[in-house]
Design a protein around this nucleic acid. Structure first.
Lengths: 343, 343
DNA sequence: CTGTTAGCGCCTTCAC
DNA sequence: GTGAAGGCGCTAACAG
């Protein structure tokens, strides 16, 4: 049932029906009710595809995230979907796997297909070079970190500062040998690198030495990666007394490894995460972590994007969103006697 | 840059360009290379919106899930997105919150807007009546359970049987007082009800009595709901020696409540879940659960949907997908001496 | 094999 | 205030 069907039914022109549907222009009350009646009788719904073609706008955006198996991203998706709904936007999703080529591909393909008006991307794999060289067909807003000058809008938290805060918390508890799980070397670790930088800043500020042996790499941010990294740390001659995991999922893997090795948390080892996913409130022990304001990230990103979609051409913007430290069970003052009997 | 631009550039008609783009019809090799050159030079990408309008197909489907904060659903989304990509389909997502009115609304609005060719829905809130009365504008395939004859295709596992299996496992371990966390009464609990039925079947088959005191209700399937339900069970004069949670998230909440109350799992209480989300392999203890074949659910659902989109008009189909029992640390033979000293 | 052309359903500029 | 008509970019029936 099309606009024309309704027009015929009501004995008016398409124009008038369109006016009523879009509450556009002045329509006489009598005419309005007559058209509305026809609309109801025929149960008309506009064809959004046709509307999109005409207007050059689809009312949809794409949300490109690395991986739906990592709760941080799905929690972000949850917030984004909610806010998008409120703005009358539809959300199309895809996963990049954190791979640079897929990220680039999707921006290219999705953007140029005109299926969406804009793209929200959490880039994990892309080189900054690639990002800044982009000339996307639709506006793109980046979620997460931006290490260098880019041509795209961006929203995220202050990763360096947040990491410094949580590591400082560990130091304040009396920990001296704090390990960190870093991302692998390569383009994928922009965010990870910032968090490691925050870690080093905290050590330096406290006058603690930086021990490269306490930096262990994980290929990804999944639980098994954290488990493997932690196991590796436990083989050290002088194991750490605390570990900072730049993602909660890594921390959950670490907790499991510690449990398997009979190391109790927090008595023998403090564990800190990053992201504050819901699971962090239920793990055993519950996890001390940094809580980025995910809702705000989503909201700000959508606003930047809407703004660009409306044609704004101001220079790239950088929105910093809040975060806070959540102290839970997994971190506690260092025991005077470690499991090795060292003091 | 449109099809016509390319046609002009190559000095041919749009028809020919279209033929080349869609590798349709016979095009002479010479012409093909000429057009291809123009295509490349102008860096042409088809406008999918225009194509959709013309063809009446969008190449997109909607995936409507209750809640992205529940990992089972995001894992299902992950599988669906992956398979959809392989089939060349784009996925649009939205959350229903498990509310009937939102489920109906979304089917109505999304379906009739012609933005998608079909809908995948995991209905949690909808009455069967409402479901069977639906006349959706696009094909709808249901994920999860279907309790009565419906007019829609459906794919899911055998919930009754799976639940019976895992409860039978508990019984085999020597548990006598097995509790279950059920969904609240109302339309929302179709799946939950089936799982409780499986639980009762298992008890009956083993000749164990059914004790209504051991059935506790949870409003939703989130971790806090499981925690509250478990706490309630622990206040019983005669608490259970095992608990079956019809969703892993409930089980994680239960594990936390047990931990807080100083009840050790599995020594003093066995805990079983349902869904086998990734977290179940990392919780402390790891969780015994039922693993539905999520990948297969997604794949079958997409195939049913594609089939309907292609115009198939066979009667409603019901695809049953496999599952298996994963035995992990959270269940163990019942101790002869319980914490109350009862035998 | 290739060119011409009529819509897909909608919005909106122009006349009335 | 309302009607008629063009066109968004693409596909495919109809010629040639």
């Amino acid at each position: 049932v099309t606009l024309r069907d309704v027009a015929e039914r009501a004995g008016v022109s398409v124009r008038t029906v369109s006016n009523v549907v879009n509450s556009f222009h002045y329509v006489s009350p009598a005419m309005r009710t007559r058209v509305q009646a026809a609309l109801d009788e025929l149960d008309y719904k506009p064809n959004l595809i046709a509307r999109s073609l005409k207007q050059g706008r689809t009312g949809a955006i794409a949300l490109l995230l690395p991986d739906f198996l990592i709760p941080y991203f799905t929690e972000l998706a949850h917030e984004t979907i909610e806010h998008a709904n409120n703005l009358g936007l539809t959300v199309l999703v895809d996963e990049t796997g954190g791979q640079a080529n897929r990220e680039l591909d999707l921006i290219e393909v999705i953007g140029r297909s005109r299926q969406v008006d804009g793209i929200l991307l959490n880039p994990l794999g892309m080189h900054q070079r690639a990002l800044s060289g982009l000339r996307p067909a639709v506006p793109v807003v980046l979620l997460g970190e931006r290490t260098s000058r880019s041509t795209l809008d961006h929203v995220g938290i202050d990763n360096v500062r947040a990491s410094r805060e949580i590591v400082t918390h560990l130091i304040g508890l009396g920990h001296k040998r704090i390990a960190v799980i870093a991302g692998i070397k390569g383009p994928a670790d922009a965010t990870s690198r910032l968090r490691v930088r925050g870690y080093r800043n905290a050590l330096a500020a406290a006058g603690l030495p930086f021990d490269p042996n306490l930096v262990v790499e994980a290929p990804l941010w999944r639980r098994p990666d954290g488990m493997a990294a932690m196991s590796q740390l436990l083989t050290l001659k002088r194991p750490p007394d605390a570990v900072f995991c730049p993602a909660d999922t890594l921390a959950f893997g670490a907790l499991r490894a510690l449990h398997d090795h009979g190391v109790s948390v927090p008595e023998q080892m403090s564990v800190a995460g990053f992201d504050d996913v819901q699971e962090a409130q239920f793990s055993i022990p519950t996890l001390t972590t940094i809580a980025p304001d995910k809702s705000e990230i989503a909201l700000q990103a959508l606003q930047l994007l809407s703004d660009r979609i409306s044609g704004s051409i101001v220079p790239p913007r950088d929105v910093r969103v809040g975060h806070h430290l959540c102290i839970r069970q997994s971190t506690a003052p260092r025991q005077l006697i470690t499991r090795n009997g060292e003091s």
